[in-house]
């Protein structure tokens, strides 16, 4: 494999029910910036029903979009996705393939990389083009203490990238590009049956603009009702530390931290949270952090914009009262 043969950046856009995941637009926006340093095409690849509007991907920054049309892509079937993606990558030979680091992306990308026998970097937070034209993939390692800058020897250079690391570009309805419709090459497999979708995620904490989170300072499950009230008032979502999730106060869907969800809201209100490294790893990039804790030496105060030494159970109800006025 030589570098000359491989050209362009391909973003594999995840969709569900015909709606493209926003991380795909963030990646197209980033790809447009990367091609300023090394001019090459930006391509989108989306597998989804015919009704899906692939033109959005052009408006978001793609020059060419491959749309493999089939209803079969309305199920998270890694094997069928893989079989339909491989022939396109082999034909187009992109130098770089980017995939959003969603759960499905992180399950699918390794299968594609292994099938192509190329390298894959997980969960990147930044991308650069080096002076030699190669992709530098930057990812946090060791509980986010360091950033590893990684390069790939093989082609295509593949990476999964976290949601919300890059800004979402404004769609430009004037942008011109080509949509290439493809028939799926494989529409069935007999190794994994997808029986049903049991539940659909209700709280998508990773997308919340405001998170009101509770930790060990909460005494029981009903304490979360107060936090929920504040979250509702602000248009946000309730978060929790691992302790209180393990204690059964609230479901794992709300867990923020290294082993839970990473969040990056405009405002994070930490109530009764001491700020263990594992928790901080999941929220320290929030735009503004307010921390309320009775212990003045709690580590959470070191990353807070505003710290209040006090009991959340007194502060939050008073805040609610003020906000309702």
């Amino acid at each position: 494999m030589t570098q000359q043969e491989y050209n362009g950046i391909m973003v594999i856009a995840e969709q569900k029910d015909g709606k493209v995941h926003p991380v795909a637009f963030e990646l197209l926006g980033k790809a447009r910036k990367l091609v300023e340093k090394k001019p090459q095409g930006v391509m989108g690849l989306v597998l989804g029903p015919e009704t899906l509007d692939a033109k959005n991907l052009i408006e978001g920054g793609a020059d060419r979009v491959f749309h493999v049309t089939s209803e079969i892509f309305n199920l998270p079937d890694e094997l069928i996705y893989k079989e339909n993606i491989l022939p396109i990558i082999r034909e187009i030979k992109p130098a770089i393939v980017l995939i959003g680091a969603t759960t499905f992306g992180r399950s699918l990308a390794p299968r594609i990389a292994a099938a192509l026998d190329t390298g894959l970097t997980a969960d990147c937070t930044d991308l650069q083009i080096d002076d030699d034209g190669k992709l530098v993939q930057i990812r946090p390692a060791f509980t986010e203490n360091i950033l590893a800058h990684i390069k790939t020897k093989t082609y295509p250079q593949m990476a999964t990238i976290r949601y919300r690391e890059f800004s979402r570009p404004d769609l430009d309805p004037e942008r011109k590009g080509e949509i290439i419709l493809r028939e799926p090459s494989v529409t069935s497999q007999n190794r994994v049956e997808i029986l049903e979708e049991v539940t659909r995620q209700k709280t998508n904490i990773a997308e919340a603009e405001i998170v009101v989170a509770g930790g060990r300072g909460l005494k029981n499950a009903p304490d979360f009702i107060t936090l929920q009230e504040l979250a509702d008032l602000l248009g946000g979502t309730v978060g929790a530390t691992r302790d209180v999730v393990d204690a059964g106060f609230i479901s794992k869907a709300h867990q923020v931290g290294y082993s839970g969800h990473r969040v990056k809201p405009l405002l994070y209100i930490a109530c009764g949270i001491s700020g263990a490294p594992q928790h901080k790893a999941g929220m320290k990039e929030s735009e503004t952090i307010i921390a309320i804790n009775t212990d003045p030496s709690a580590p959470i105060f070191s990353i807070a914009d505003i710290g209040i030494v006090g009991d959340w159970a007194e502060v939050i109800p008073r805040l609610l009262e003020k906000l309702k006025q």
């Binding site: 569900k16 998270p76 190794r191 049956e193 997808i194 029986l195 979708e197 049991v198 998508n204």
Partner: peptide
């Protein structure tokens, strides 16, 4: 997976 939970049977 895929912003939900799915039942799957793997052979």
């Amino acid at each position: 997976i895929w912003e939900g939970s799915y039942r799957k049977r793997m052979h």
